[in-house]
Design a binder for these strands. Structure first.
Lengths: 111, 111
DNA sequence: ATAATAAATTAAATTATTTTAATATAAAAA
DNA sequence: TTTTTATATTAAAATAATTTAATTTATTAT
């Protein structure tokens, strides 16, 4: 097959598209909360995440909804899931998530 | 009036809300392009921005649409507009925009 | 004044995302 | 094997964002 050559412009466009996907998926309060929780705890089961989100955000977010968010985040490679018995344990799957959230924290939560 | 005390949690929640707003508005290809163009050129008129966006993204984006994006970005303080005669010149209005875009560039456009 | 240019505004139409509700699957316990 | 627990899947309903098209305002030039 034909070898595709990446021009500087195509690399730039691809980078932009990835950055856009990243921000888009992170700009939802519950998805962002999930990522923050995983940064804090390194690994959590789906159920632990549900509890934690419910505790923060009183009376919102169904199990189904959170499972859907976890699916979206995993699909995009931001988290990984490992099955152990009936539980599924999630972790951050892309180090860029941590860097981005760290910067946001610096910018918007000044000491 | 009653003096509101900011607890650590309320500050965290507020920071999170601001970070969410920021990412939400930045996660649209044309709005992000506008911000990038303004970082590159420091100041551009609305018309120049329209041309530039049109050049990058062939045959998309109407004058009206771009004007609407400029309005959204200004409303949120990410850019400022200064009127000079019939032109309106825009600039980045929040230094955090630059920091965030710089990080995204590092993360997604590796040399 | 009239016309032309630069940019903003409004509203309707379209499309995408989010939420809700119901159901399904798979593993563990009874 | 029946039930319970943990999680995922699906589809419909609700909501929000985007796009398009038409119009408007303000400024400069004729």
């Amino acid at each position: 097959m034909k070898k595709k050559i990446a021009t500087p412009e195509s690399r730039r466009a691809q980078g932009m598209a990835q950055a856009l996907d990243m921000m888009k998926i992170m700009s939802h309060p519950l998805r962002l909360s999930i990522l923050c929780a995983l940064i804090e705890h390194r690994e959590m089961s789906a159920g632990e995440i549900v509890e934690r989100i419910r505790a923060e955000t009183p009376a919102k977010a169904s199990q189904s909804q959170i499972s859907q968010y976890l699916g979206q985040l995993r699909e995009q490679g931001l988290i990984t899931g490992r099955k152990e018995g009936q539980f599924i344990y999630y972790r951050i799957g892309d180090p860029r998530v941590k860097k981005l959230i760290a910067l946001l924290h610096d910018l918007y939560c000044p000491a």
